[in-house]
Design a protein around this nucleic acid. Structure first.
Lengths: 232, 232
DNA sequence: GCAAAAGTGTTTGGATTACACCCATGC
DNA sequence: GCATGGGTGTAATCCAAACACTTTTGC
């Protein structure tokens, strides 16, 4: 058995991570973009991403890269798909792996840093042209995410910590592009462990809604002890 | 902005693909292994995997690698997780991406080729020590797969093309580690598009069961036209 | 006839649907 | 009081679980 190229030649690739950070505001899902101030694609919009150091593990690298470019810390990143088209990077063979997260936009203050010149949250239907294959990465990751919304309680990472049931319903209506009946939605989510707070909406010009919080403790306990399956 | 190492230094990694091929026989899920006849880990069991060529796209590389090592062709491979621990490969920084497939073991004839010395199907609970981090890759990919069994009709890739309902039930019972009621199982799968064949089991020492086939055409049509969601 | 598994029917209670209605607040 | 959403109740229907039962085959 022999390779068609010299063995050393295989060790000429690079590897990067790109972070697709999704949030929810104004009734729409948004993605976090940076304006690049470094070649290649200097001056263009992209998702935060960079090369991995030789001795760096992937989850650590993902956090580091996101923090360096946007000052965001403590974001819970998950691995997504890997993109390795041979022509995707103009400077050589760079394979990239998507890391994604769902965050509460209002609880964070993303700020451009390092070679990021600017940051912005773009609604998914208004994403500008992006560097590299970043549009494909964003859209493909969003599709994966929508599937996860069915089977895992990740909507609570997008909603404010204290939310009204109607906000939750609207998020699902947006993601699945369907309309839901209010009364039935409320019955359906009865099995989800939520804490009913002693608080109400403020500054609304109609009857204020009660606020709820996802009971993560109890959720984990239910999964452990009763094989609980989240379903929406 | 500057990197802690020279830019060229980033282009010193390699990238491989490892194929986790799952099949079902004797009531158990099996994974396809090869015995390596090449360093590193020569003489040890591993899943079929190899380095990607500089100009090669990932899906093509996955097919090529699987064919080179096992002579299997036309297997429908899907991308899985990426593993990039800095210490995972003794010869340098090699990041690897898992590609997985579900196959009908009896319809295939896997044969060792190239630097594979031997192939075998190992039941998941009897997987020997494996080279690199291949045990982690296999187990982690199997977990992903079990989740997919809930929401996608992939069980039919594991079952024989013509199967009895009881075989399908047993596959789910094995994967989810639960017992199911026969009558209720049959009611539950009524919504799945199956073709009832005019054939029965042979060589069984009891009443032979009717055989069924998954109606892939109709499934795709239902997904397209009626937003059909497979659920188990 | 007997063993073994195929295959069906019935009951019950809990979810899902569609839809109507009342309630609390700002203005 | 009225507009605006918040929040609830009901009836019809569907679905799932538990369990008993009948059928068809090999031996």
């Amino acid at each position: 058995m022999s390779y068609k190229i010299k063995f050393d030649h295989f060790f000429s690739y690079s590897f990067s991570l790109d972070c697709a950070i999704f949030g929810y505001k104004d009734g729409k899902i948004h993605v976090l973009l940076i304006k690049r101030a470094m070649e290649p694609f200097s001056g263009e919009w992209a998702i935060p991403g960079d090369l991995v150091y030789p001795d760096e593990d992937l989850p650590d690298a993902a956090s580091r890269i996101l923090t360096e470019l946007t000052k965001l810390e403590g974001v819970d990143l998950h691995q997504g798909q890997t993109f390795g088209n041979p022509g995707r990077h103009p400077q050589g063979r760079v394979i990239t792996c998507a890391y994604f997260a769902l965050v509460r936009i209002d609880d964070l203050k993303a700020e451009a840093d390092s070679w990021a010149e600017e940051v912005m949250w773009a609604p998914l239907n208004e994403v500008p042209n992006l560097a590299f294959d970043h549009r494909e990465i964003v859209m493909s990751t969003y599709e994966d995410l929508k599937k996860k919304l069915h089977s895992e309680p990740i909507c609570f990472n997008l909603l404010p910590e204290k939310f009204a049931l109607n906000e939750m319903q609207q998020l699902y209506e947006y993601a699945y592009d369907v309309e839901m009946d209010k009364a039935n939605f409320r019955k359906k989510i009865k099995s989800i462990p939520l804490v009913t707070l002693n608080e109400k909406q403020k500054n609304v010009k109609h009857r204020p809604a009660k606020l709820f919080r996802f009971d993560e403790e109890r959720y984990k306990q239910l999964v452990e002890e009763e094989n609980y399956l989240f379903r929406m």
